[in-house]
Simulated scan of single mutants.
Amino acid sequence: MPEALVRREARGRAGLITLNRPKQLNALNDAVMDQLGAALLALEEDAGIGAIVIAGGTKAFAAGADIDVMADWSFMDVYQTNFITRNWETIRQIRKPVIAAVSGYAMGGGCELALACDIVIAAGSARFALPEIKLAMLPGAGGTQRLPRAIGKAKAMDMCLSARMLDAAEADRYGLVSRVVPDAELLDHALTLASQIAAFSLPALMAIKESINRAWESPLSEGILFERRALYERFASDDAHEGMHAFLEKRTPTFHHR
């Protein structure tokens, strides 16, 4: 059996999914995302579940993508395998409300995973960043599309172009998160909220979610397509490979702007 990188359980009408790669700070690779997608779909199909919580660990919700896996991929590696599209898009299929319970670092893909959820509850220790520029890459799991919609163009440009990290209070002020709670109360708060939401009519919840997403994401499909192609093109860049290898070797990258 594959390693349980994601744990799934029911807490009354609330479904709880916990990312389970603590040594890697819940870095998101294909195996994690496949298991996350399977857990989400299972809870979507469970008639006893009305809302879903996705949680990480105390140190990190999810510390970005697994760079070690992708450092030597080529453009065709990602293009032919539908990198990101084949497993990240599962969360967009989920019609039940999904709540992210974020403690510690939500970096890169971790921040994008939180952005893909319907409600984001942040602990005081939560930190949000899209640092892909440091690797000569770009946020490619919806970051360049969802972040401006959440916090506005100016602040999204700042985060994406400078790799600026937001603390929980800033993220709350900017509108990236729904509310901030003490660290010790994060999971209880998220599950209480999920239970409260799940107690309402599921068809109504689904209709509300669909309606808000229609208003918020009307042009998103074209943006995602453009972003995905731009991400794939990064794998044809010498600088991107240099950035990733420098990260793995714990040295400062030398970019040649190609």
Rank of each mutant, 00 (worst) to 15 (best):
F255H: 01
Q80E: 10
L176V: 08
G56D: 00
K209M: 06
A150L: 09
R127P: 00
R234D: 01
A171C: 06
A60Y: 13
A10C: 11
I212F: 13
G56C: 07
I49N: 03
A141G: 01
P253T: 00
L176K: 07
V32G: 00
M70K: 09
G110Q: 08
P139Q: 15
E233A: 15
A190Y: 05
I52C: 06
D118P: 01
A204F: 09
G50L: 07
E45R: 14
V120N: 03
G124E: 15
R251Y: 02
I224K: 13
A122T: 12
G243K: 07
N20T: 02
E249N: 08
P2W: 06
L25R: 15
I119M: 10
I94A: 08
Q80A: 15
P203T: 10
M1E: 02
P182V: 04
D239V: 08
H189A: 14
L202V: 11
F75P: 01
Y105L: 15
A198I: 06
A60R: 08
I91V: 11
L186M: 04
G143W: 10
A240F: 11
I67P: 00
L187S: 07
A10G: 03
P22F: 09
F128S: 05
L5F: 14
L225P: 00
A204E: 06
S221I: 07
R92C: 06
A106H: 11
D183V: 10
L130S: 02
P131L: 14
P131Q: 15
Q24W: 12
G37I: 03
T81C: 14
S125N: 05
A47I: 05
A190K: 04
D77T: 13
P253K: 04
I197G: 06
P131G: 15
G124C: 14
Q24F: 11
Y232Q: 13
D34I: 13
G12N: 02
K250H: 10
L36C: 02
D167K: 12
T18V: 02
G50E: 04
A63Y: 11
P182Q: 04
T58V: 12
Q24I: 10
Y79A: 15
L166Y: 14
A190S: 12
D72T: 12
N20D: 08
E112F: 12
Y174I: 07
E217P: 01
D66V: 03
G15L: 03
D34Q: 12
M137E: 03
I94K: 11
A168R: 09
K153L: 11
I67A: 04
Q80W: 09
R173C: 14
